[in-house]
């Protein structure tokens, strides 16, 4: 099982780790352009499903690419700050056929990501459309940015 820690600093913070992470992302996107796609990137080999995680003011969003699953075969569970996605992809066996190519993988997958702050686990929404599993995780009030008025004396 693959566990990946999301940077606790979030994006945009001017910390040494964030700049290194940003540089790494830039290099990866440059390499993606040069080599023609993320599939050729060896560091991602075997990591399934690919996930993008993002946030706005009120929510975290986790989007995983899991084409060819049924919604009933996908499990999403939430523990503290960690969200786990698991499931099975089963392409029905075809009778009496001969395969010329078998590039698509089948089987069981499991992956979890730890988000940088707490989220409200009771109100997580999961939708599955066009092979993309989208999780919307509302941030609790305490995790939302709050505007503080600066007063002059």
């Amino acid at each position: 099982m693959i566990v990946r820690q999301v940077s606790p600093w979030g994006a945009g913070w001017n910390t040494p780790t964030a700049s290194v992470a940003q540089m790494r992302r830039d290099m990866e996107s440059l390499l993606e352009r040069l080599t023609g796609g993320p599939q050729t990137d060896g560091s991602m080999a075997g990591v399934f499903p690919p996930m993008n995680v993002s946030e706005d003011r009120d929510h975290y969003y986790v989007r995983a690419l899991v084409p060819g699953c049924d919604a009933a075969q996908l499990n999403v569970s939430v523990v503290h700050q960690t969200i786990a996605v698991s499931g099975t992809r089963q392409t029905p066996e075809e009778e009496g056929v001969s395969y010329h190519r078998k590039e698509r993988a089948d089987g069981v997958f499991s992956r979890s990501v730890t988000l940088p702050a707490a989220f409200d686990g009771t109100r997580v929404e999961a939708t599955y459309a066009d092979g993309v599993l989208t999780l919307t995780l509302p941030k609790p009030e305490a995790a939302k940015p709050r505007r503080v008025t600066v007063q002059t004396s």
């Binding site: 990946r4 999301v6 994006a11 945009g12 990866e28 993008n52 995680v53 993002s54 946030e55 706005d56």
Partner: peptide, 12 residues
């Protein structure tokens, strides 16, 4: 992604 979203993990 919505226009206000900031990426945290970017794999595809």
């Amino acid at each position: 992604e919505g226009s206000n979203e900031v990426p945290l993990l970017h794999e595809y």
